[in-house]
């Protein structure tokens, strides 16, 4: 795999629905194994930026390179598959399919990513190991996702993001639904895993207190410009 896990160059995106909202990101990159905290208030374009990185939306201009591949040059279906192969995604909350078991949820990205699937020799063993490393009960992988607490569900989401070792993990305020103690414990577990696997982490938050634990902290307003035409 060549190239940085994430490299954004001269990206501009304009929302087609809401007139006058546009986002430009001249330069953003995350190095291999680096953990980056991206701070920004709501409405600062964080979500749009994450969608651009994940390839569910395409910039009007510029390049979004993930692990050396410019995803803006890929077709929609290829971008979806590429995301499955290269990026582990952790949401704010409601990460899991409520009707699936933990195992189903953890293995879900492998279903759409054959190469990532191949990197995992024994998926069930791998999922069990990840769960154990993340402090989840050993027998929990066959439990329904809804049987877990919110904190446990977030840890399952981490296991799902990590399985098959994608080069980049994108986390969208994964701790906002947790209390302070759980936040800290969650980050301990997350960092232990990303360090172990040398995985890059881009985490988005509005909480500057988390910053000290990351290699680098960037402010949304420093890397991106938002324009809103007055209505």
């Amino acid at each position: 795999m060549t190239g940085a896990p994430l490299e954004i160059t001269d990206v501009a995106y304009r929302w087609s629905g809401r007139s006058g909202f546009s986002l430009t990101v001249p330069d953003l990159s995350v190095a291999k194994g680096e953990s980056v905290l991206l701070l920004g208030e709501s409405g600062s374009g964080k979500s749009t930026l994450l969608s651009l990185i994940c390839g569910t939306i395409v910039p009007d201009q510029g390049r979004v390179c993930i692990a050396g591949t410019d995803i803006t040059s890929l077709s929609g279906g290829a971008r979806d598959k590429f995301r499955a192969e290269q990026i582990g995604v952790i949401f704010q909350q409601f990460n899991l399919l409520p009707f699936g078991s933990l195992l189903d949820n953890i293995l879900l990205p492998l279903r759409f990513a054959p190469a990532r699937r191949k990197r995992v020799s024994d998926a069930t063993a791998e999922a069990t190991a990840l769960c154990a490393a993340l402090g989840l009960p050993a027998d929990a992988i066959y439990a329904k996702a809804t049987a877990l607490s919110v904190g446990q569900q977030q840890r399952v989401a981490v296991a799902r993001a990590l399985i098959g070792q994608p080069p980049l993990i994108i986390a969208d305020e994964p701790t906002s639904a947790l209390d302070a103690n759980s936040q800290s414990a969650f980050l301990d577990l997350l960092f232990a895993q990303t360090t172990k696997h040398n995985t890059s982490l881009l985490m988005v938050s509005h909480d500057p207190r988390l910053g000290e634990r990351f290699d680098r902290v960037i402010q949304m307003e420093d890397i991106a410009q938002i324009e809103r035409a007055s209505v």
Partner: peptide, 16 residues
């Protein structure tokens, strides 16, 4: 919609 967003994040296409 949440469920579908999870599928999408995991790499499912809209056609899936």
């Amino acid at each position: 919609r949440r469920e579908m967003a999870i599928f999408r994040a995991m790499g499912a296409r809209p056609s899936t």
